[in-house]
């Protein structure tokens, strides 16, 4: 059994009386795609926020490559190789697609904040950025401002921005939300092409996609993990069927 890349140990978080994360423990092995599913309001996005550092858990530990990162800021976690995408696409609309990806590259190069080196003509930034764009099939859109992309293209761009960080793990918060069928299929294909190379935690509502992609599935209901394991086993779990899958038909 390989050492997991990402481990959550009894993570808890409450907003007032509401327990949004209730004693959650799970782990993602290298190269594994771990899907996190659950009804709306189950606390999936809140959990992703805690892993990426935008929210602080009340208690529990988050380990990334063996290190407890629970107290680190989001930028420090990103620098250690933990990338994420957002449920509501989050790009820099006025920058070009290439520049968006170059931001991630910039985080990894020497002198990331050089005051005088021109960024637009910087091959050290642009070359890896272009490679990441090629990986997600957006290379021909490199010069377009990110704000003009279609919704599905923005999703792919976010993925490229995550890849540019050369991450060890990627948190994907509903990458298929709001995407049309055709673009959705392309994104699923893209995600499966990344499988094995990165540890991924995938939050997703599209069950077809989840069961096509996931190596492991955890089900979150009211902040608690009610089941976790192989996709087939989780699908067969009566508690899961009752709490969640049954409604989906």
């Amino acid at each position: 059994m390989k050492q997991p890349v990402l481990t959550l140990e009894s993570v808890r978080k409450s907003f007032g009386a509401l327990k949004v994360t209730d004693d959650v423990s799970l782990s993602v092995a290298p190269g594994e795609l771990h899907a996190l599913i659950g009804p709306n309001g189950a606390g999936k996005t809140t959990l992703v926020h805690q892993i990426s550092g935008m929210l602080k858990p009340d208690s529990g530990a988050i380990r990334f490559r063996g290190e407890d990162i629970s107290a680190l800021t989001p930028e420090k976690r990103a620098r250690r190789g933990l990338a994420r995408t957002f449920q509501i696409t989050s790009t820099i609309a006025s920058l070009s697609v290439l520049e968006n990806v170059a931001l991630g590259v910039q985080a990894k190069v020497a002198h990331p904040l050089s005051l005088f080196r021109n960024a637009a003509r910087d091959a050290a930034l642009n070359r890896p950025a272009l490679a990441a764009l090629e990986a997600v099939g957006l290379a021909d859109r490199a010069e377009v401002p990110a704000g003009r992309l279609s919704h599905g293209e923005k999703r792919a761009l976010e993925l490229a921005m995550a890849l540019a960080l050369e991450p060890a793990a990627i948190l994907l918060d509903e990458p298929l939300a709001g995407v049309g069928r055709e673009e959705g299929e392309r994104l699923i294909e893209l995600l499966s092409s990344l499988k094995g190379r990165y540890a991924m935690l995938l939050v997703e509502h599209d069950m077809a996609a989840v069961f096509a992609l996931a190596d492991k599935v955890s089900v979150l209901v009211y902040g608690r993990v009610i089941a976790s394991g192989e996709p087939a086993a989780v699908r067969a779990d009566p508690a899961v069927r009752e709490a969640y899958l049954g409604e989906e038909g």
Partner: peptide
């Protein structure tokens, strides 16, 4: 570039490692 990006979307910039 980071300064400009942070004007529009500081959260994105911070999860990108800055």
């Amino acid at each position: 570039r980071i300064l400009r990006a942070a004007r529009e979307n500081p959260v994105r910039v911070s999860v990108t490692g800055f």
